[in-house]
Design a protein around this nucleic acid. Structure first.
Lengths: 215, 215
DNA sequence: CAGTTACCATACGCATGAGTATTGAGTGCT
DNA sequence: AGCACTCAATACTCATGCGTATGGTAACTG
């Protein structure tokens, strides 16, 4: 009966102030350091971004990290627990990022065009969001996506109000804009529609700005 | 060695002019008639619309149809073959439907607003499309969705040209419009964002028309 | 320098779901 | 009636992938 091991849970790493510092040396090999729960969560988000939520399997993830399942089940009670923790991590990380984006632009008149252009040009942060869009079957991702989409839409609505639109129109314009963003991700990111060229893409973004943002 | 059965394939029901006519009697029971490949394809599309591509399992589908796997593997060589046949069926069916929508509206000036309002009010045909959007991981659905989305976008582009937009702008407006449609499906159909009310939804559609369609 | 803790390996159990093999029953044709 | 063809039931095999049990080892701690 050994040592009466405690059952691990997602919310059970209380102090753990010691950060794993990955020195990123020249070797492409997985570093062979001990892993923490955060490592697993980050790796999970990578897998989600690359291959979707469905491809999140514990044995594959373990191989990716250079260990075996035995390690995983010390950190997490179940696969779902990992998903939940990873989604939580992604949500809070994205929160800080969006807020930073807001603060960055001072003039309300310039906020929307600038936001459009920035969002259009950093496609990496959208990979996870695009992957989660395809996983709306899963009960764990629905509330997360609902909260994130809701907050972003509300942010857009206030921006449109500040740009001069009356409240009712501002909300609808925000819905329209955010839907266009989501649809664009699906059509050009996940699906590979005839791979729009760089200049055409810039022209598309400017067309969006001209169409959706009041003069 | 029995009878040297031929191997069934998706493309192997050549004449088959006899349609299965489901008389839809008062009983809610599954009718107990013999099944054909088309029955399986229709049932597959139902499952896809309701629970997504991932939920398309042959044993579950067999239970749904009141038979067992033994029947399935007579009609189709594999599960993928069923998916392919069902997608093909859906694509060609949708083709006819879209064309009918086009013909229905005579005046080019009125085509777009009318199209918007109609599309907005029949949400049933979009269930399969929304489900397939979440299955863009799967190699079989990608080409289908690419073709369908491409054709619809091109149709929108010509409509915007007929509405007075110069070609370059018309194409971008079509992309924007179709992206908004796709995003709307994701956000309000699959995800259940704060369940917009009926009047608010109509107002949203009118806002879309006012914003996206040139006066 | 023991002993505990934290992390990992190995080897299982077990459920699900695809695909196969074989038998059997209904239906039409002659 | 008899035969072939069509559709379906039963009973398997096999691979995958989650979760468990338990023993092992490095690192920290007193």
């Amino acid at each position: 009966m050994a040592v009466n091991r405690r059952t691990p849970s997602t919310a059970c790493r209380p102090p753990s102030p010691k950060r794993y510092h990955a020195p990123m040396n020249a070797s492409s090999k997985p570093e062979r350091t001990r892993l923490s729960a955060e490592n697993w969560e980050d790796a999970a988000l990578d897998v989600i971004a690359e291959q979707g939520v469905g491809a999140l399997a514990v044995e594959a993830l373990a191989r990716r990290l250079g260990v075996t399942k035995g390690s995983f089940y010390w950190h997490f009670r179940t696969r779902e627990a990992l998903l939940q923790a990873a989604l939580e991590r992604w949500e809070h990380y994205g929160e800080r990022e969006v807020i930073a984006q807001i603060e960055a632009i001072a003039d309300p008149r310039e906020r929307l065009p600038e936001l459009f252009r920035r969002v259009a040009h950093e496609l990496q942060p959208h990979r996870v969001y695009a992957a989660l869009l395809k996983a709306l079957d899963h009960p764990l991702v629905v509330p997360v996506m609902a909260r994130v989409s809701q907050r972003r839409t509300e942010f857009l609505a206030t921006a449109f109000r500040e740009a001069g639109l009356p409240p009712a129109q501002a909300l609808n314009r925000a819905r329209l804009t955010y839907a266009a963003y989501v649809g664009f991700l699906q059509l050009n990111f996940t699906l590979g529609l005839p791979r729009i060229s760089h200049e055409d893409f810039d022209a598309y973004v400017e067309h969006m700005i001209a169409t959706l943002i009041p003069a």
